[in-house]
């Protein structure tokens, strides 16, 4: 049950609250470049979601099996050359960035070949985007986030398992798709608008991205609210929450100053 709630919150956070594009700014290049048509944007989003899940699987496996100190594979291999204590503590995390980028590149390569051979229909819809994805920061960012929850975690119980890692990656990809599809929908309508010449193209896209980011900021805090409701920390906290019930709306609405104007964001 606790595990399920945890997974659900990771999914919600990755897809909406801390949206990859609008909160972490990863994958901005396709967000600006490939968001002219809804179909294209959707194809790109699907391709990213597909690759990001595979890359997360590969990088999680490599990190836990080879890179971290005490990983089974590296200590087994090092056991042939080094004394036992040294072999058990061999730390290869410095190689992680190189390993990740190459696992992403090879994942993209294999996915492209596989999809082209066995799913020509699918390939025609998003195949053209696959080579572009290698340099999409969103994929590497997902790998790095997973790494930060696996490497150097203080107590072993907090370490992410494969389920959490895959959830983060898959829903991060879904969040990317949501953002880029919304963007392309707006841009299709924008074709009919009279935009001042200097702002045409990337500039107006970024400004709209800013407004979308403000909208997505409204999701902030939803996860901690849900967590408090489902997993109350201590009895005293629950009773404090019940006492505060009349003021409950205050907890959700937080005020914020935008351009010096006092605004209430819900």
């Amino acid at each position: 049950m606790i595990y399920f709630i945890d997974i659900m919150l990771i999914a919600l956070t990755a897809a909406l609250i801390n949206n990859f594009v609008l909160y972490y700014f990863v994958g901005i290049c396709p967000f600006v470049g490939v968001s002219r048509k809804v179909e294209m944007a959707f194809g790109m989003g699907m391709a990213v979601t597909f690759v990001i899940s595979i890359a997360a699987f590969i990088s999680w496996s490599i990190t836990t099996m080879v890179l971290i100190p005490g990983a089974p594979l590296s200590s087994f291999v090092a056991g042939f050359f080094l004394p036992k204590e040294m072999a058990a503590n061999i730390d290869l995390t410095i190689l992680s960035y190189i390993v990740y980028i190459f696992s992403i590149a090879s994942a993209v390569q294999f996915v492209e070949m596989y999809v082209r051979k066995f799913f020509p229909m699918l390939y025609s819809s998003f195949g053209v985007f696959l080579p572009l994805i290698t340099t999409n920061c969103a994929i590497l960012f997902a790998c790095l986030t997973i790494m930060s929850h696996v490497v150097g975690v203080e107590n072993p119980k907090d370490m992410w398992d494969l389920g959490r890692a895959l959830t983060l990656a898959f829903f991060g990809g879904i969040g990317f798709t949501i953002a880029i599809v919304i963007m392309s929908g707006i841009r299709e309508e924008l074709e009919l608008c009279d935009i001042p010449e200097p702002f045409q193209g990337a500039a107006i896209t970024l400004i709209i991205g800013g407004i979308l980011a403000i909208a997505f900021m409204g999701f902030t805090g939803v996860d901690s609210g849900i967590r408090d409701l489902l997993l109350p920390e201590t009895p005293s906290q629950v009773s404090a929450m019940i006492q505060k019930q009349p003021q409950f709306s205050e907890n959700i609405i937080s005020s914020i100053e935008i351009f010096g104007i006092h605004m209430e964001i819900q």
């Binding site: 805090g221 901690s224 920390e233 201590t234 906290q237 205050e250 005020s255 914020i256």
Partner: peptide, 20 residues
């Protein structure tokens, strides 16, 4: 903190739980 009720409550909650 005005405008940051949740943040201040979170910190206080962490302190309460930890001490308990």
């Amino acid at each position: 903190i005005s405008g940051a009720t949740i943040s201040s409550r979170s910190v206080t909650g962490i302190v309460n739980t930890t001490i308990a």
